[in-house]
Design a protein around this nucleic acid. Structure first.
Lengths: 378, 378
DNA sequence: TACATATCTGGGAGCGCTCCCACGGGAGCG
DNA sequence: CGCTCCCGTGGGAGCGCTCCCAGATATGTA
């Protein structure tokens, strides 16, 4: 009863309203048809799924199944298709796939400008490197989006609503950034790099800032130093609070209580580090160790200490955070807490892919451990 | 005679082979139809072009024309369409556009790993920033592709053949990299960041390395220094040759001939800079100025000079190249040649867009001038 | 032997857009 | 006053894929 459908109907005939047009001048349209595809040439000479199917002597569906790794294909058919793909050098058309499958096979790495200004340096590149590595095996594309102006933020939101990516990686956003909530509301899989606060609920991958800071302070203490101070980052940033916390923990454990006069506040800039160091020197002339929450601030501290005639590390031991190029090339080379940045990037990508894959909304929280890189300053 | 076509035919009826199916069990298919689109809901609840058309009381074609800025639309129709777009919050579906229009509205920024390892630092990020800025006004997407393994290079080539991007930005490739030629052959619009040799034929945007180096050397000479040496980069890199050239030009002009013993070869690393400085110090104990072809090498030189008891800049004036964070935070802060990195990124994007727009293969060669940033080392 | 079940397969329909053709009506012309 | 010409317009066809359904075939069971 359905047999009629199996009759071979010339392409271009069944399709469209040509039938209704009868004797009208619909000829030109009829001539068009999908002849190009059915023949040996796709647009721009690129092979199409249909060409592969013809070549392999199977149907479109089967080729699609092979390409997408469906298990419901006989070994024989699979082999034929794979051969045809190789011979033709077939590569799936991403746009067609996206359109038909309602997905994009792309993830965006979003970087708010504020962040790039601060820790710039290798950090960002390492994240990209990690993400890229992890994505290399899938055929997800990595889209880079810098957000600087409100207009760009607006556009990003629009793109998100239009579902132009399957997921988003968000590099350290500020606590009051509306982006994460927008993404959550839109149900776009998202992974943050760094938490916004202690009770972050979205998926995130962060470094163990507390542990790293604690280790640094402990190292200073282990060197026999007694007057161990710290230069913090801006405390409205969670990462800065964490590093202060780690320091405080180490001091507590060492029974050195919490002397707030040993805590000076910086802002992650060299000048901030300078000011904080001057303050510290004034309050504690006998200071013999400093843990700075960033390398750049540590550099500032080095300069001030030098001017004050203090030697590093003989008089004052110093540890920074980030293990940046600045730390490596400083004089003396700075001991610093290294974050596994590339690994963080890889993990972010992995978590995101998992989240995109399983359509469930399972949040993941990952904290990767840091490591003290010993150089000459402590 | 064509009037019959204007009769309103219910959607889903004209389309497909349903007509042929007559009394057969084609019901399920008929029910499907494109009802969803015709009604008020696109996939995922997102508005479609067709919905906008319905809302504005015009045809699909007209909406498309408005969206794509075609001039052949009456003011009235345009206004209606724009209103409908705003009301519905319509955003074009990128995949559909790509499929129908045979383009992708995306460009790739390709970064061979080798390069990222060397000058890493802000350089790369600034390029991205520039590119991103320029692209923000179009709705081109920026794809980031890191090339590290031969496998990744292979995949990139494949993507290029499948025309997954409309154009490519290539960050400083080596002279023997086959990528540029592949891209040229594939006729993919491409812009290089930096030349591969003096006779680069592809479009490129480069910094005036010769001029920057010349200025640096001239500055040193202008300080009254007579024994002005240079530490070069690896001379198999064009950029290194350029910087050496600039230095040589300044020396020639000053009538100081070309004393090859004043030229030491480094490799853009700190250790390379150290070794070169030691060499120089040995050959010319009375040396009073050094131009290093990179900041990192300059840092190495500073360290060696310090150990040798030479003061910077009192005994030996020093200039680096790149104006990196390392230079800014060094002790003393390094005078350095700044490249307009972000501007380079912007220009690259602009040139690429132009090349994509005009389907002609007009190559463009842009050289942006550098600038000496004076700090304390010279 | 007949019938139910599981497995593999072809191909129609449709994703949302662009391209382009052919229509209608207004302006310009003789 | 009829004739082109052109501009603005609607909408068919098709881009290359995925989804899914119904056939065909192979396997198992009574």
């Amino acid at each position: 009863m359905y047999g009629i459908m199996k009759v071979h109907v010339p392409p271009g005939f069944v399709k469209g309203a040509n039938i209704l047009m009868g004797a009208t001048d619909g000829l030109s349209s009829m001539v068009t048809g999908k002849s190009a595809t059915a023949a040996g040439t796709g647009r721009g000479g690129r092979p199409t799924l249909e060409m592969v199917a013809a070549r392999a002597g199977v149907g479109r569906g089967t080729v699609s199944r092979v390409v997408n790794g469906s298990p419901h294909v006989s070994a024989q058919a699979r082999a034929a298709v794979e051969a045809a793909i190789a011979e033709l050098g077939y590569v799936p058309n991403r746009a067609a796939r996206a359109l038909a499958g309602d997905r994009t096979d792309a993830v965006a790495l979003v970087i708010p400008e504020s962040e790039t200004r601060l820790s710039a340096e290798p950090y960002f590149l390492d994240i990209v490197r990690g993400v890229s590595t992890e994505l290399a095996d899938t055929d997800m594309q990595l889209l880079l989006t810098l957000i600087r102006t409100p207009r760009e933020r607006q556009r990003l939101a629009q793109h998100m609503e239009a579902r132009r990516v399957d997921g988003v990686l968000l590099v350290s956003v500020h606590e009051d950034d509306p982006l994460p909530d927008l993404l959550a509301q839109l149900q776009v899989p998202t992974v943050l790099n760094g938490r916004r606060s202690e009770r972050e609920w979205m998926s995130y991958v962060d470094a163990d800032n507390v542990g790293g800071a604690r280790t640094a302070a402990e190292h200073l203490l282990g060197l026999g130093r007694r007057t161990v101070a710290t230069i913090t980052g801006p405390l409205d940033m969670y990462v800065a609070r964490c590093r202060l916390d780690g320091y405080a923990q180490a001091m507590d454990t060492a029974g050195l209580g919490s002397d707030t006069s040993l805590v000076a506040h910086g802002d992650f800039t060299e000048e901030g580090g300078r000011a904080a160091m001057r303050e510290l020197l004034e309050r504690h002339p006998g200071i013999d160790a400093v843990f700075a929450a960033s390398d750049v601030m540590a550099i500032g501290a080095v300069h001030v200490l030098r001017q004050a005639g203090r030697r590093v590390p003989e008089d004052v031991a110093l540890i920074g955070f980030d293990d940046s190029a600045v730390a490596r090339h400083a004089l003396p080379p700075l001991t610093s807490v290294r974050q596994p940045t590339e690994e963080m990037g890889r993990t972010m990508a992995r978590v995101l892919l998992e989240q995109i894959g399983s359509r469930t909304t399972t949040r993941r929280h990952v904290v990767l451990s840091t490591e003290l890189v010993r150089r000459e300053s402590a």
